[in-house]
């Protein structure tokens, strides 16, 4: 019994962190973007493309670093489509985001077929391996689950602190101002458009890395349809839940990661419920969470609104 409990705990802790990672990466990026006033609905599409590019690069070169670089580049490129449309051209952010979403789906699928064809066995890679932190990972029971993760997971955790401290720096202040009152920020000498560009592109890069993580660290088998399945949108939902604050959003990511971990665990120990039930649970959970948390939303004033001089 105790052994089972031990198994469960180690698994759950570890899985929570692993599942939370892509959410953290995407959500932290989106926090920056939305604080600056731009909602990026294309996250899902960026994650898809990011996952595909990273995977393909690793598949053909065997080089993980290169895979990540590929992810960064594609993220930046996609960000450089969203940004001009929403910032310089002042077009509707939701529509632009949807456009990127569809583009992500289309291009990913197209390239997948083009490169991997109709293979009956899905391509896979060895992917990233965990890096153990020496002393800490040796702590009994939870040491291994907490301190033995892939580099991207460590990055995600550091990112939480990073974003938190970002908002205390001059640049962070400008990001907040760009989302709260871009006109005032502009009058005070801030280059609002530049700040917004940087925020959006950063968010895109992080989302792309998030997709890359799923492909080369989490799942390692590539499947164009089943891999991302709404994680991008869930990340946006978590930003709303987190009230645009990095710590609170991170909490939401961990909650969700835990939910997914429990989900898989229950399936693994063969709880007698149809698999679709488990599949639906995370989404319903987010909807409920949003219902509760959105009552007194304190969104950045100018979120979603273009800055017209």
């Amino acid at each position: 019994m105790i052994y089972l409990a031990y198994e469960a705990v180690t698994y759950l802790v570890s899985a929570t962190i692993v599942f939370a990672t892509p959410l953290l990466l995407s959500a932290m990026g989106e926090v920056i973007s939305e604080r600056a006033g731009i909602i990026n609905l294309g996250l899902e599409g960026i994650m898809l493309l990011g996952s595909f590019v990273s995977f393909t690069v690793v598949y053909f070169t065997g080089n993980l670093i290169l895979g990540l670089v590929g992810g960064i580049i594609i993220g930046a490129l996609l960000g450089m489509i969203v940004a001009p449309l929403t910032i310089t051209m002042m077009q509707d952010q939701i529509l632009a985001g949807l456009g990127i979403f569809f583009a992500g789906i289309g291009i990913t699928f197209f390239l997948y077929r083009a490169i991997f064809g109709f293979a009956s066995v899905q391509p896979q890679v060895t992917g990233m391996t965990e890096i153990r932190i020496p002393v800490l990972a040796d702590i009994p029971v939870i040491g291994d689950s907490l301190f033995s993760h892939t580099a991207l997971t460590y990055l995600a955790i550091i990112l939480i602190a990073g974003v938190f401290y970002l908002f205390k720096t001059p640049l962070g202040l400008r990001i907040i101002a760009a989302g709260e009152n871009p006109y005032a920020a502009y009058v005070m000498g801030s280059n609002v458009n530049l700040v917004r560009y940087l925020s959006v592109i950063t968010g895109s890069i992080l989302a792309s890395l998030s997709g890359g993580f799923i492909a080369i660290a989490l799942v390692k088998i590539y499947s164009p349809t089943r891999m991302i399945s709404g994680i991008g949108f869930i990340a946006i939902g978590l930003v709303y839940f987190g009230k645009w604050r990095p710590l609170r959003t991170a909490l939401g990511c961990f909650f969700f990661g835990a939910m997914q971990a429990v989900d898989y665990y229950l399936q693994a120990i063969k709880v007698p419920l149809p698999p679709q039930f488990f599949n639906m649970l995370p989404y319903i959970f987010i909807i409920v969470v949003l219902a509760v948390a959105s009552r007194h939303a304190e969104a950045p004033e100018f979120l979603g609104k273009p800055f017209k001089k």
């Binding site: 202040l173 400008r174 005032a184 920020a185 005070m188 000498g189």
Partner: peptide, 19 residues
């Protein structure tokens, strides 16, 4: 338009000081 309402007084000063 010239002050960011959701920020504090000193933060508004910081904003105008230049990055």
């Amino acid at each position: 338009f010239s002050l960011v309402r959701n920020l504090r007084v000193y933060e508004n000063f910081l904003l105008s000081l230049g990055i």
